[in-house]
């Protein structure tokens, strides 16, 4: 499968990535190789096979409705690039 310019732009927008013009050619080739692998997987005949979302027969374990985690704002905010007045801050998002 080939990845064209507009597909690359679409993926970049979804991933919120700015791609330098010099990188475009290489990225398109890499993505084409990756989707090529998916293409090979898709070639397998799966007619009559139930779609599988999870291997094995695990089912979910549920937690009781009890609060077990307290205020750790300071520790979490310390991990972030920017914080102010108890909030994480990011460059202004304009809606």
């Amino acid at each position: 499968m080939t990845i064209d310019e507009s597909t690359l732009d679409h993926l970049a927008r979804l991933a919120r990535l700015r791609i330098e013009p010099a990188d475009r050619g290489g990225l398109m080739a890499d993505l084409a190789a990756l989707t090529g692998l998916v293409g090979r997987l898709a070639a397998v005949d799966t007619a009559g096979v139930e779609p599988l979302s999870h291997p094995g027969d695990l089912t979910l374990r549920l937690a009781p409705d009890v609060v077990t985690e307290g205020d750790r704002a300071d520790a979490l905010l310390a991990l972030s690039e920017a914080a102010q007045g108890g909030y994480y801050t990011v460059p202004k998002v304009i809606e």
Binding site: A63, D65, V67, E69, D71, A73, L76, L77
Partner: peptide, 25 residues
Amino acid sequence: RRKLFSGAATAYGAEPNAQVGLVDA
């Protein structure tokens, strides 16, 4: 009382980021 996937509280009106579990973050 707690969130859908973490053990943090859901009460409205807490100080900002005071009810954030590790999964939520």
